[in-house]
Amino acid sequence: MVWRCEMTPQELDDLLSAARSRPAEASSDFMARMLEDAYALQPDPVVQAAPAVAPPGLLARFSRWVFGFGGAATGLATATAAGVWIGFVQPAPVTTIRVALQGAETVEQVDLIPSLDGWLSEG
């Protein structure tokens, strides 16, 4: 009778598998030390900085001073005021363009609904 005493590859693999299925048990003290290290060496939380706000422009500040509010409403109010001012004062550039297009009539004399007489006289 011959007795085989050599470990087979399968037996060794089984032994290694058994070792693999037995993970190391870390003590609570060890885990606590690891956590303390991790916390101690951790960078401070990243704080999101508020986006930088540009200072308001001169017009916006003027509008805010005059009308007491800003934003889109300020632009609308400014445009309205400018239109009223142009209508009353009729600055030189505007007058020049109007004269070139319409002749010397003043704005108040523009006939928005022309008479039909001119058309009828043609027969």
């Binding site: 991790a38 960078p43 401070d44």
Partner: peptide, 16 residues
């Protein structure tokens, strides 16, 4: 980035 929960999970996962 300073996430402490991430620190805990990593310690639990990697230490053993």
């Amino acid at each position: 980035q300073g996430d402490r929960s991430a620190a805990r999970v990593l310690v639990l996962r990697l230490s053993p």
